[in-house]
Design a protein around this nucleic acid. Structure first.
Lengths: 133, 133
DNA sequence: TCTCCAATTTACTTTTACGTAAAATTTTTT
DNA sequence: AAAAAATTTTACGTAAAAGTAAATTGGAGA
C-alpha cells in the first residue's frame, strides 16, 4: 500500500481538494515563483516535494505572512551560502523571523487566555440560567 | 506621577507614534466600527480603554486576522447573552477561534524548529570556514 | 475519430486594508 | 490676533491575493 508521500505525482485538483484551495491559488503561487511543478505537455505534475512546499506555503499563510515573506523564509532553507558576510546576514534574518514568531506566540497565548475567560463567564451564565451543559 | 494608563485622553498622533501606525489606519478602524473615540468639537479623543482596544486590534493583525475576524473576536468580549441558544452559540464560536489559535501555535512551533535548524547549519558552516562568532 | 471533461491561458474584476492628496477647519503657539 | 501646526473630511488611488469568465487545448474513453 502506498502512503501519502510515496505517490509519484499529484494533479492540481488532487492538491486543491486535499488542502481546500482553488486551482487559481496554486497557479498563483507558481506565477510567484514559489512552486515549479514539472509538466507533461501543458499539464502540471506535482511531486511529493511540491506538495510539501505547498503545505509550507499554506502554513505561512495561516500565520499571516505575505507571499514575499514566505518567499524569504523559503529562501532560508537553501544551502547556507559559502561567503561569510552572506552567512552572517542569513543568521541575522533567521533571528529576526524567529523574534516575529516569538511575538506571535505571545499574542496567541494572551488571546487564548482571554477566550478562556470568556468561556468561563459564559459557562457561569449558563449555570445561573440553570441550563445543563 | 501619571502612569501610561491613567492619562485622561490620548490624541490621535500620540497613538500613531506609540504604535507606529498612521492616522489613516486609526480612522479606518473607526470607520469599520472597531473604535469609537469621543469628540471635542471635531477632534477625536481616545480614552485609555480606546488605547487598549487599539492594542487588541493590532495584536489581532499580527496574528493575521482580518478586520472582520477581529470584530468578531471583539464581540465575544461583551457581556454574555442571556438567552440560552445565543450562549451556546457563543461558547461554540469561542472554541472555534481557540482551535484556530491552537493551529497557529503548532504552525509557529514547527516554523521555529525549522529556523533553529537553519541557524544550526549556518553556524556549522561558519565554523567550517573558521570564522569566529 | 469523436466526444467530453479536466486543465490551461489570458485577461479583467474584486476585496481588503490602508496610502495619498487637497481643501477646510481647529488648535496651539508666538 | 496672526501664523503655524495639527486635525478633519472627502475622495480617488493602490498593492496583495486571489476570484471569475472566456476561449482553448489536451488527454481518456467509447
Amino acid at each position: 500500500m502506498k502512503a501519502k508521500d510515496t505517490k509519484e505525482f499529484y494533479t492540481i485538483t488532487e492538491l486543491t481538494r486535499e488542502f481546500d484551495i482553488s486551482t487559481r491559488t496554486v497557479r498563483f503561487y507558481e506565477d510567484e515563483g514559489l512552486i515549479q511543478p514539472v509538466r507533461r505537455g501543458r499539464t502540471r505534475l506535482f511531486k511529493p516535494s511540491d506538495r510539501r512546499l505547498l503545505m509550507f506555503i499554506l502554513r505561512g499563510k495561516r500565520l499571516g505572512f505575505s507571499i514575499a515573506e514566505i518567499r524569504e523564509i523559503k529562501g532560508m532553507y537553501n544551502e547556507p551560502p559559502g561567503e561569510e558576510g552572506q552567512l552572517k546576514l542569513l543568521i541575522q534574518r533567521v533571528q529576526e523571523k524567529r523574534d516575529q514568531l516569538y511575538q506571535k506566540r505571545r499574542d496567541i497565548e494572551e488571546t487564548i487566555a482571554e477566550l478562556d475567560q470568556v468561556e468561563e463567564q459564559s459557562l457561569a451564565r449558563m449555570a445561573e440560567l440553570g441550563v445543563g451543559v
